[in-house]
């Protein structure tokens, strides 16, 4: 996707080039990950934009900083958790994330997709993040532990608990 993400500027050009590269490679993955986390496409787009903007700010202040995909996922996870907390406090938006799923495209509404989203709607944010980072984004438990700031065993336990919920949902729906 050849999009110009930032205005050209002499001081910002380095950060701009690096963020453009990151965005080209990860924006779709980040948006899909965030959509599963928050259950809303529009919010996911906003949060993805926030993550990329945070990356640009970070590179603007420290151009030599190595910014990896793990950093992007960590920022995205924290943004999603913050959003879910705000949503829980404000309660202005519907808490039923299945409602958002019904607004997805028809080809995305497979049984597995709906089951997964229904299970994620019941899970705490940390378990959702562990499940999505490992089985959705493809990170190992050690990499996910580094992103989430916890241990690999804790990530495996969270995946196991998320899996139990998903199994319950699948049983109920069948």
């Amino acid at each position: 996707m050849e999009e110009v993400y930032l205005t050209a500027g002499s001081a910002e050009s380095g950060a701009q080039v690096r963020v453009e590269a990151l965005a080209r490679e990860y924006q779709t993955k980040l948006a899909r990950y965030l959509r599963r986390m928050v259950g809303d496409s529009e919010v996911a787009l906003d949060l993805t934009q926030d993550v990329l903007f945070a990356a640009f700010r970070t590179l603007q202040h420290d151009p030599e900083r190595p910014l990896t995909a793990g950093w992007l996922y960590k920022t995205a996870t924290n943004s999603a958790i913050s959003y879910l907390r705000r949503k829980k406090i404000i309660r202005m938006l519907p808490l039923d994330r299945e409602h958002d799923v019904r607004s997805w495209r028809i080809d995305e509404q497979s049984a597995a997709s709906l089951d997964l989203q229904a299970a994620l709607a019941r899970l705490p944010a940390d378990q959702s993040a562990a499940m999505l980072l490992t089985s959705y984004a493809g990170y190992t438990s050690h990499e996910a532990a580094a992103i989430l700031g916890t241990s690999a065993d804790a990530v495996r336990q969270r995946v196991c608990r998320a899996m139990k919920t998903l199994r319950t949902v699948m049983t109920e729906r069948s």
Partner: peptide
């Protein structure tokens, strides 16, 4: 979970910074 991931067809267009 893998099926749901593989069936994902959403190609988001993220607004620019």
């Amino acid at each position: 979970v893998a099926d749901a991931r593989d069936a994902e067809t959403w190609e988001p267009i993220v607004p620019s910074a």
